[in-house]
């Protein structure tokens, strides 16, 4: 128990709540207007038959949700999106974990700081442009094909552009830094002496990895996977640019409802089903995510 004797400055009081409200009020009011109310409005829209503006005939209905559960098309889409999310998260782990390990455990001091920054910076830079830059690498007779042709004379065409793998490559590139970041943080907290201890007890490198490092780094791995999976299942720009006609996912269909088809209620219902998936994932992994933060 923290005894009052050791409390640095007693801070509680009725005027505190008022000061706090004045300081926080504007920020939270902003979030209510721009996030909470829009989500509520979208929930409402998802039960309408048409956009509720003058001149349109609209009534409340479940038909938007019924459409999803009755039409094979939407369920396939949802499945494709979930699979894409899982695949991208998996690849990010496979590529990113060793990278985080090398960074956290074998490189020291200023070099580590610099390399870490180098990994993280692209993540915060413009996502659209990074996706766009892949078109130059992947397209037919692009950099990748020319390089392979130079390496292996007579190498045929890959035709990667506008395929499912192209979408995966672009998304892995986009979100890889996230996985490296979360794994790096959890690997950093593992005491090196634990590994030495396991080795002194006769464990091989592989056993140490399996029994000590991976379990201890698990919160970081899961956090990375969740934080990648969630935005990927809601992606639409990446599949559009790199996937072309192969790039039809739940995200692109939702975008269509809002920008092309103008069927907002259906778009809202699909958005909400997507949000439901997101919330379920966060709820399931909440305990591990909390440990990771």
């Amino acid at each position: 128990m923290a005894l009052p004797d050791t409390v640095s400055v007693p801070r509680r009081g009725p005027s505190d709540a008022r000061s706090a409200a004045w300081l926080m009020g504007p920020a939270y009011l902003w979030l209510i207007i721009t996030v909470l109310l829009p989500l509520a409005a979208m929930f409402y829209f998802s039960f309408l038959s048409d956009v509720p503006i003058a001149g349109r005939n609209w009534y409340t209905t479940f038909s938007n949700y019924e459409a999803f559960f009755q039409q094979e098309f939407y369920r396939t889409l949802m499945w494709r999106s979930l699979r894409l999310g899982a695949e991208v998260a998996l690849w990010c782990f496979v590529i990113g974990f060793p990278c985080a390990y090398v960074l956290a455990k074998t490189i020291k001091g200023r070099w580590r700081e610099a390399l870490f920054l180098l990994v993280i910076i692209p993540f915060w830079s413009n996502a659209l442009i990074r996706i766009f830059s892949w078109t130059m690498v992947l397209r037919g007779n692009g950099i990748l094909e020319r390089f392979l042709a130079w390496l292996i004379p007579g190498f045929g065409s890959l035709d990667l552009m506008f395929t499912y793998p192209a979408v995966v490559i672009g998304l892995v590139h986009s979100y890889l830094p996230y996985m490296i970041l979360t794994c790096y943080i959890s690997l950093q907290t593992i005491d090196d002496s634990l590994v030495d201890a396991a080795r002194s007890l006769g464990a091989s490198r592989l056993t140490v990895l399996r029994k000590v490092i991976l379990p201890l780094a698990m919160p970081g791995i899961v956090a990375g996977a969740v934080l990648i999976f969630v935005p990927v299942i809601g992606s639409f720009m990446e599949p559009r640019i790199l996937g072309g006609r192969e790039g039809t996912f739940l995200g692109t269909v939702i975008e269509d409802q809002f920008t092309a088809v103008f069927n907002w209620p259906l778009g809202a219902a699909l958005s909400f089903l997507l949000l439901a998936c997101v919330l379920i994932i966060f709820a399931v992994f909440q305990p591990i995510l909390r440990r990771a933060s």
């Binding site: 005894l3 009052p4 004797d5 050791t6 400055v9 007693p10």
Partner: peptide, 16 residues
């Protein structure tokens, strides 16, 4: 600790 000595000092100082 917990005897109230710091509380007394902070009362004299005027923090509470």
């Amino acid at each position: 600790s917990g005897s109230g000595k710091t509380t007394l000092l902070r009362l004299i100082a005027g923090f509470s």
